[in-house]
Amino acid sequence: MMGATDLVLVSGKGGTGKSAVTAALAIERALRGQTVLAIDLGTGLGLGTHLRTSSLTYEPTQVRTGVWAMTMVRSAALDEYLKTQLHVPGGAPSRTLAGALSVLVDTAPGVREIISIGKPIFETWKEKWDAVIVDTPSLGQFQSYLRAPSTIAALVPTGRVKRQAGSLTATLSDSSITQVVLVSNPAELPVIETVEAIETITSERLCPTPIVVMNRIVAKSGITEGHVKNLVDGPLREAAVHQRSVESLQHHWMAQIDIDVSLPYLMGVSTPGEVAVQLAAAMRAG
């Protein structure tokens, strides 16, 4: 690889296809010859199935040509954070400290998030990958991830954690490094929640302006009202009416938001791995 690493953070309302889009973004870059690391910050299941692997670990493993993948394991991430970022020495004192900090991770605002969002950023700093692509949890949790460094900075007046939080904020807000992708669907709740998230993220200046990926768009069929009117009752008519209703509803919701990337509704595709590959192909074509 050459040059700096892109950090791509993917979020969106649950059920919009966030993990599938994350996997597709990784596959699409790999098809262009890049080496990418895909990170699951959620349950570790969604992204894995879309990359056709059953179990992701904290240690990145290669899942296909050019694509490496890993999942967040908080205890391992905490350990790494202490050693590489806070330079806490090994041995017994560090175990004591690690014990205290593991409780902090579960309790204090911002700490859990900073450990989670820290890992992709450290991987970005290594300049070992062309891109680090991150499947983050739901929109609400994603925003608390973005806020974590400043939450921490407000809670602790001085010290190594505070200095380190400043470096994280600098990377997150640098538009030459960080790209935020919000996945949405052409339906009421996904569109409304995406618009609200963009407003919050932009007004709080948490990161560069998000890119909206509209997933599951049903392709225009060319069926007109005239076509439907002349049809007798039955499946042909029902499917035509259904298509027109879906087109019109999707059109209504897509008009409420600025869309950067459009992805198709994949009819009849039933495996997560196939969904990701086809979405990657659609990104390449688009």
Binding site: L86, V88, P93, T96, L97, A100, L101, L104, A108, L155, V156, P157, T158, G159, R160, V161, K162
Partner: peptide
């Protein structure tokens, strides 16, 4: 332990 932790964390967190 709290003193040690606060030294790293930088406060009475």
């Amino acid at each position: 332990m709290l003193r040690l932790a606060d030294g790293v964390l930088g406060g009475p967190m």
